[in-house]
Design a protein around this nucleic acid. Structure first.
Lengths: 166, 166
DNA sequence: TAAAATTCCATGATATCCCATAAAATGGCA
DNA sequence: TGCCATTTTATGGGATATCATGGAATTTTA
């Protein structure tokens, strides 16, 4: 089975910025790090810039490697490549779980997404997101109402099955 | 794992031009120098000419070697090759980290990119850039607005997914 | 030999490691 | 199926190592 990031949970962020990564997510990070062995702790990548400036996004090594390889196919000095590198490499950082399954959010990262002493982790399949709780609730509400306002043929659930037919 | 240059950080440049290279970048430089051993300090290459005259670009030995090989494929006396060699070979220099993980930016280099007493290091995957902070902010803003003004089918993120299909 | 560059040492700040504990989840097993 | 033993999690505190930076001493070089 290829595990995916699923579920949401709330965690304390202590004075040093340490926060536990949900245990279920750790399993996915371990599977997604080719160099992970029982004795070590998995590496992964956190992207903090990009389209959504209000949350952090965590990627396994193998899924970010896929993205990196695609970017490397673009012409070395092209504007497109520059934009993507800026969003995906410049505005990201490697992280490693510590022995207790935690990571450290630097002051800069906390500030970026408005986190003080609590964080919400949300599974998004191939990636997960880290949100400040209030912002997260707003995001959920916004998505909810956006969905309700869609017409029948805009319904993404229905589009899913159309994709399958191709 | 093949580490890539990720993240951005601000560092002081002292009167002698010394500046710390971000610790995370040092690891990449070490991995990218075939001759690096535990006891030594990694060599790498800084390009100061190139497409953008307003920042320096740092390459690991192995990634600059890739670029060199690409250039070598061009016809020996072609204008293209001459131009590229001028930018990548002539306008570049070898550097080595000192024991504290610093490099020295000569007066000439600092002047070239307008640096006084602070520098921003930005990870760009296979290379990293060194910027004067204000110029860097301008560049980021310019990229941001360039990105925002793109039409749907010009979006480099979406182009990535199309690449995936190839 | 004076200026410039390089090496060596010092230090405060930050990040990392290591241990401790309580709560929760898991797993027998009668 | 109810209870206890064991493991896993979530969280905190203190010790230690690394990092960023400055200054002095030494070497190079022009």
């Amino acid at each position: 089975m290829i595990r995916r990031f699923r579920g949401e949970s709330l965690h304390k962020v202590d004075a040093k910025g340490r926060v536990s990564v949900p245990a279920a997510f750790r399993r996915v990070l371990e599977e997604g790090d080719p160099e992970f062995t029982g004795g070590s702790y998995p590496n992964f990548v956190v992207v903090y810039g990009g389209v959504r400036g209000n949350c952090l996004e965590g990627y396994t090594i193998s899924s970010i490697t896929k993205v990196d390889k695609l970017i490397s196919k673009l012409a070395r000095f092209s504007r497109d490549r520059e934009i993507l590198e800026r969003f995906i490499n410049t505005q990201s950082t490697y992280m490693q779980l510590d022995e207790n399954g935690r990571i450290v959010l630097s002051y800069r990262l906390k500030e970026k997404i408005g986190i003080r002493d609590e964080a919400i982790f949300a599974g998004m399949g191939e990636k997960f997101q880290i949100w400040e709780p209030k912002n997260y609730q707003n995001e959920v509400d916004a998505l909810d109402s956006a969905f309700k306002n869609l017409s029948e043929d805009e319904n993404p659930f229905l589009k899913l099955d159309q994709l399958q037919d191709l």
